[in-house]
């Protein structure tokens, strides 16, 4: 690339095809430009009788706003291919440091286009922080076409992973769930869990996502003025679990009921295997010394005579008896 001074009036400001928009604030950049001017020359490409900006949109806009007539730029040779420009553009962007979600999304979209169905080089994905998992780059790319989600992401209240998951949803339900997540102020992993639950329940029940999100039970929790965001999050997670895993949750509840009816002493706890899978049941005895252990063991032996004990292990016993 050759260095030269480009007359700002020769730039086609409308053509922003090489832009990777950050949706971020420019205060720091503007302060730097005000102090020191343009240090790093923008990249320019000559197209037809005009120049178009490849890199440095904000710097050149600042110069134009300030009333400068020209600016020092690096000019791409006329015969360079768009894919070559993009490769350099992405490489440079990645070396500048961590990209924000909007830049990541746009870069993902460009990579997909550049490699046209072939796998994008792993080095790019690593630098972008996108795991090399099938379909993930596509999801990020989809996000680049959703400025309303990117704006929300910019607020920092929505986790990238949750936003990526909803990037393929219909706009209304995507915005509705993101609004919900913003209200709940929960961790990234819980945000993703909520998004996945809603998605899977809607598919499983053949129910539009928006309809599910507008469900009176959900709305009642969301609008409850007596619950703070932490409590709302927990109640909603429980509700979604019941909707997504009704049989498992019912069995857990039955187990709790049966254990309660056994009136176990405080020193004994019965622990079922995770998800009741297999035969790995456990009994915990809590004690503080030999005397306590003797008492706990005696109480455990006493349990053996209780017919109610069988109910815990056999989900149908209550119904059959």
């Amino acid at each position: 690339m050759d260095f030269g001074r480009i007359c700002l009036s020769d730039i086609d400001w409308e053509d922003r095809c090489f832009e990777i928009r950050s949706f971020g604030h420019n205060a720091r950049l503007h302060a730097s430009l005000d102090r020191l001017g343009i240090i790093d020359p923008p990249w320019i490409l000559r197209r037809g009788g005009k120049y178009i900006v490849v890199d440095g949109f904000k710097r050149l806009a600042w110069a134009r706003e300030k009333g400068d007539r020209d600016a020092g730029c690096l000019l791409f040779p006329a015969n360079v291919s768009p894919s070559e420009i993009w490769e350099r553009r992405i490489e440079r962007k990645l070396f500048e440091g961590d990209l924000n979600p909007a830049e990541k999304a746009r870069t993902a979209a460009i990579l997909l286009e550049l490699y046209n169905g072939e796998e994008a080089p792993g080095a790019f994905l690593i630098a972008l922080g996108i795991p090399n998992r099938k379909g993930l780059l596509e999801k990020w790319a989809r996000l680049s076409r959703r400025p309303e989600i990117l704006e929300l992401l910019g607020s920092g209240e929505i986790a990238d992973r949750a936003a990526v998951e909803v990037s393929g949803w219909e706009p209304e339900s995507a915005m509705k769930v993101l609004g919900l997540l913003k209200l709940l102020r929960c961790s990234a992993s819980i945000q993703v869990e909520i998004v996945e639950r809603i998605d899977e329940i809607s598919i499983r029940e053949n129910r539009p996502r928006l309809d599910l999100l507008n469900d009176p039970k959900i709305q009642e929790i969301v609008s409850d003025k007596n619950k703070n965001s932490r409590v709302k999050t927990q109640v909603l997670r429980d509700l979604f679990s019941r909707m997504r895993f009704p049989r498992l949750v019912e069995r857990e509840r039955k187990f709790m009921r049966d254990v309660k009816s056994l009136a176990l002493p405080r020193s004994i706890r019965i622990v079922p295997p995770p998800a009741f899978e297999g035969n790995g049941w456990k009994m915990e005895l809590h004690f503080s010394g030999p005397a306590g252990l003797r008492d706990a063991l005696a109480e455990a032996v006493g349990l053996a005579g209780k017919s109610l004990l069988d109910r815990i292990f056999d989900p149908d016993l209550e119904e059959r008896s």
Binding site: F245, R247, L248, P274, A275, F276, E277, P315
Partner: peptide, 15 residues
Amino acid sequence: EFIRGLDGKMRYFRD
């Protein structure tokens, strides 16, 4: 309603 089985595979809840 899948849970993670003892072999690491996803399987329907046992009931």
